[in-house]
Nucleic acid binder design. Structure first.
Lengths: 215, 215
DNA sequence: ACCTGAACACCGTTCAAGT
DNA sequence: ACCTGAACACCGTTCAAGT
């Protein structure tokens, strides 16, 4: 047993409404949960604070404003998505075109799994990305991950020659657009179930690799 | 001369702060202008009402709530974009693939010209599309316009066989994703000028027609 | 150093009252 | 029928004050 008693001390502090211990993470967790439930515009900072068990002004000790907290959530989303891409790439056998296909499907599935998070990451709610360094960096890492797959495909001769940035942008645009059209429910006659997502992702990524394939 | 004097009567009414004449259109115009300047989340209904020269409660005589007004703007955006697609299609010679290419570029240019409107149309700010019948219809018409080009390309033998909905979704996803990535400034090293937009649209639509081309 | 509670200026929405 | 002004319940943000 340790001589320090952090848990009881924290509990006592919480009882008297003081010292949260790790409020920043608690705010993130509460915000993430509420975001997933109702979307960024429908959740207030006061509600997040309440869910974290502190007064509505306490968040300002850890975040400059509401946007800074949302930016943290978006950043985590970008890191998560980039990680998924790396993982899927590593786990997929059959060459770069199959990897790209698998990543595209994973990208769309990520969006369907967390629609409100995807909207936050790309929907224009967060302004002033310059002031959130980590967010811009995480977003850039996602782009780099995709570019890496394209570059390796060119090196192996599976993907045709051309500027890596241009080809990556095309591939990214396709899966990104599909994910947002699905999440935004803009596709007529769409049933938003796993089968449709799987089908649509397969169709789109097939077109993609037809366009990218070396000939 | 008519015996009725609508214009002076309206002016007199306006002087005493009553009877706007065509408040609904005035609200739309004011909202559209403010949306273009600062985006949907940064503009309040009170501000729109003030810009239209009425009290902050007057808008509720014409719109159920703020969302209904925003839905009207989004609907106009969808109709505008669908009209642009039809116009570009009619004006482009050289077959369906060239038409699709031209529409893709026009789609991206529309987004770059009106980034806040594009975000409103697709960014998830408007919830409950079911309650805005005109909006859902206008969005559907845009999809139909795109599907029409794909179908005519199949009829002429330029576009390969396959489900029209699937091929249309792929084409739409590509240009839609590109437009949103550009507007959202998510492309590393991007310069958001006309030359880049032209270049990126050309690259992406080239990949698209390679993937769609009959072989 | 970290949090609270009151305060400020806003916001969307409602509603009785005016013409 | 159409609009106003007051009112209500919220919100983001600030700040003196508490421990």
């Amino acid at each position: 047993m340790s001589t320090r008693k952090p848990a009881p001390a924290r509990a006592a502090a919480a009882r008297q409404g003081y010292h949260h211990g790790d409020l920043k993470n608690a705010l993130q967790a509460a915000a993430s949960k509420l975001l997933a439930q109702r979307g960024a515009e429908a959740v207030s900072l006061r509600e997040i604070s309440q869910a974290a068990g502190v007064s509505h002004a306490a968040a300002y000790r850890h975040y400059a404003d509401k946007q800074a907290l949302l930016a943290d959530l978006a950043e985590a989303g970008f890191r998560d998505l980039a990680g998924i891409n790396r993982q899927v790439t590593a786990a997929t056998r059959g060459g770069p075109l199959e990897q790209l296909k698998a990543c595209g499907r994973a990208y769309v599935e990520f969006g369907v799994r967390q629609p409100h998070l995807l909207q936050l990451m790309f929907g224009g709610v967060i302004t002033g990305w310059e002031s959130h360094a980590g967010l811009a960096q995480a977003s850039g890492q996602l782009a780099e991950t995709l570019a890496g797959i394209v570059a390796s495909g060119q090196a192996s001769g599976d993907i045709r020659a051309g500027d890596v940035g241009d080809l990556t942008l095309s591939a990214w645009s396709l899966v990104h657009g599909l994910a947002l059209l699905i999440v935004g429910r803009r596709i007529p006659g769409m049933r938003m179930d796993a089968a449709f997502v799987k089908h649509a992702a397969a169709q789109c990524t097939t077109l993609l690799i037809e366009g990218l394939r070396a000939r």
